[in-house]
């Protein structure tokens, strides 16, 4: 039973990521490498962040503004990481195109680019789920469960698994939105991504209020669903545009 519970929590957090990995990413070795490097990127950003915040820890419970500052700096830094990742990806894309040219193969198609951005986003999301949820999940495999004070209705593991799921979806698909936005130089989407990330992060502040996790977690999941839907629209629009362009060119 306890192992089942632990596995269940892990699958709640990582299930969609796992199926995305098995279904899409694992088929192409290059995508796996992209995923690994993006995970490493996220980890480095987290280490830098914790290095900055190390002096101010531990934060006293009840000082929500400290957490607010923490979240703002964190999101800012991570969005910066995304920009760096985009720059690197751009360089790599040039190299890949040149390489494809050399071996007389066509260059990267739109779907290829989207796959790469999906792998990159999945890397961020998986890293988040792993470090914030999975690494604390070990006790869930044991005998008891654990409640935090401010959230007495839901086990801590369930809450963190749900939050990790929300962030996994947000990270994964906002990377696709962001890459498309950078590619098209579309300002609104470029702003959309940090805004969604910040909104989601701020929503977790609700969990600090006693009983807040019953509101905060569903809100976060709704944000995740919205991101997913927005990403779907972006992808559809780009693909149909691409098709039209191709038809017109023929």
């Amino acid at each position: 039973m306890t192992v089942a519970a632990g596995l269940g929590y892990a699958l709640i957090a990582l299930g969609p990521g796992l199926s995305l990995f098995a279904g899409v990413v694992a088929r192409k070795p290059f995508l796996v490498l992209t995923l690994l490097s993006s995970t490493l990127f996220w980890l480095i950003s987290l280490i830098v962040l914790s290095g900055i915040w190390r002096g101010f820890l531990p934060i006293k419970s009840g000082t929500w503004w400290a957490y607010a500052i923490l979240i703002i700096t964190s999101v800012a830094l991570q969005e910066g990481t995304r920009l760096v990742f985009w720059r690197l990806y751009k360089k790599m894309e040039e190299m890949l195109d040149a390489f494809a040219d050399r071996i007389s193969k066509p260059c990267l198609s739109l779907t290829d680019k989207m796959l790469i951005s999906l792998a990159g986003g999945l890397g961020h999301g998986v890293a988040h789920a792993v470090f914030f949820c999975l690494s604390l999940l070990t006790p869930a495999f044991g005998q008891a469960t654990f409640y935090v004070e401010s959230c007495s209705k839901m086990p801590f593991f369930l809450a963190s698994a749900l939050i990790a799921l929300g962030f996994l979806v947000i990270h994964t698909f906002s990377m696709i939105i962001a890459f498309n936005a950078y590619d098209e130089r579309k300002k609104s989407d470029q702003i959309f991504v940090p805004v969604v990330h910040m909104t989601a992060a701020v929503m977790t502040l609700v969990n600090l209020v006693p009983g807040g996790c019953l509101i905060g977690t569903p809100l976060l999941l709704v944000t995740a669903v919205l991101t997913l839907q927005y990403c779907w629209r972006v992808a559809c629009r780009r693909l149909t545009e691409h098709q039209h362009r191709q038809l017109n060119s023929n």
Binding site: L46, L57, Y67, V148, F156, A164
Partner: peptide
């Protein structure tokens, strides 16, 4: 071990994530 763990554990045991 020295930097990240206290940070992440401190944040996520309060269910504050980003």
């Amino acid at each position: 071990r020295l930097l990240m763990e206290p940070f992440v554990v401190g944040a996520s045991t309060n269910l504050v994530m980003f």
